[in-house]
Computed example of a mutant assay.
Amino acid sequence: MRPAATPETAAPPAQPPERVVARVRRHARVLTIPALLLIAVAGATAYGLGVAPEPWQGLAIVAGAVLIVLLGSFLPYLGWLTRRTTITTRRIIVRSGVFVRVRQELLHSRGYDVTVRRTWGQSAFGSGDVRINTGHEQPFVLKDVPKPELVQGALQELMEHEHSRVADRRRAEQSMIDGDTVAWGGR
């Protein structure tokens, strides 16, 4: 028969492993203009090469087209690709940056207010901004997220679950206190 756990030997409940709930990027519609620009530059370059009488003019057209495509299509795509939001069971992680990586984290246990803001264009495409008010001057904003109501509901549920887990852990720690020790607000 196993002896009952005494307050001195009882271990606090183990924390469940952190799991990824969702990985989110901005809505892909932000790449519409860069894609249209790429198509237009390809067509204009082909036309310009066919009309240009001198070889140096063809080189100038190609160099200009490469520069426009690099600045107007490739860099916006790279910016979209390198900004990612990961929502886990314990926190929100936002990673961004190409040459300088920036990582921001927000714990669910801190408590926050989640709101959704949608413009008419975002409503048409089923996206919106999820604003997370943490009590600081600037809210934590997940911009142009697809299905923002679903993200809002998931964040609220995760926050409630994290608060109940923290409260359970505190109760377990309180119950481990032996009879000689008085916790603040106890007895």
Rank of each mutant, 00 (worst) to 15 (best):
G153R: 10
P7G: 07
L38W: 15
V145K: 03
P139S: 08
R26G: 04
A14M: 15
G50N: 11
A35E: 05
V51C: 06
R170N: 13
R83A: 08
V151C: 01
S109H: 10
G48L: 12
Q122L: 02
Q174C: 12
G153Y: 06
L81W: 11
G121P: 00
V24F: 05
R131Y: 03
P53F: 10
P76Y: 09
R29Y: 15
A44Q: 08
A22N: 05
S164P: 05
R26S: 12
L67S: 14
S175G: 11
G97T: 03
L36N: 11
Y77C: 12
L49H: 08
V41P: 01
T6E: 11
R117M: 10
E105T: 00
G153S: 12
V151L: 06
P13Y: 09
A172S: 08
T6G: 11
N133T: 14
L106K: 00
P139G: 02
P148R: 00
T88D: 02
F99T: 11
A11P: 00
G72F: 06
W56Y: 14
V51Y: 06
S123V: 00
I33N: 03
A5M: 06
G135W: 07
A11W: 12
A14Y: 12
A4V: 15
R165S: 12
L49E: 05
A52S: 07
Y47G: 14
H161P: 06
G58L: 07
K143M: 15
H136A: 13
R19N: 13
V21G: 02
R110I: 03
Q122F: 02
Y77T: 12
R117F: 13
A40V: 07
I33A: 14
T115A: 07
A154L: 12
D180N: 14
Q122K: 00
R25L: 05
L59D: 15
P3T: 09
V130D: 00
T134S: 04
A65P: 03
L37K: 03
G58H: 04
G50Y: 06
L70R: 08
W184A: 12
T134V: 08
G48N: 10
H136E: 14
G64W: 05
H136N: 10
G58P: 02
V66M: 11
T89K: 01
V66I: 05
K147N: 12
L31C: 04
A4C: 15
E160Q: 15
N133D: 14
R101Y: 11
V116P: 02
M1Q: 14
V30T: 10
P53A: 15
D144H: 02
E157S: 10
A63S: 14
Q174T: 08
P17G: 05
I92A: 00
P53Y: 04
R117Q: 13
G121F: 06
A5S: 10
P146T: 01
P53R: 08
P53H: 09
Q104T: 05
V24P: 00
E18Q: 08
V141Y: 02
R103H: 03
Y77L: 13
P55I: 07
E137L: 13
S96D: 13
D144M: 02
W120N: 11
H108A: 00
E105W: 00
M1K: 03
I177M: 08
P53D: 07
I93R: 04
R2S: 15
G58R: 11
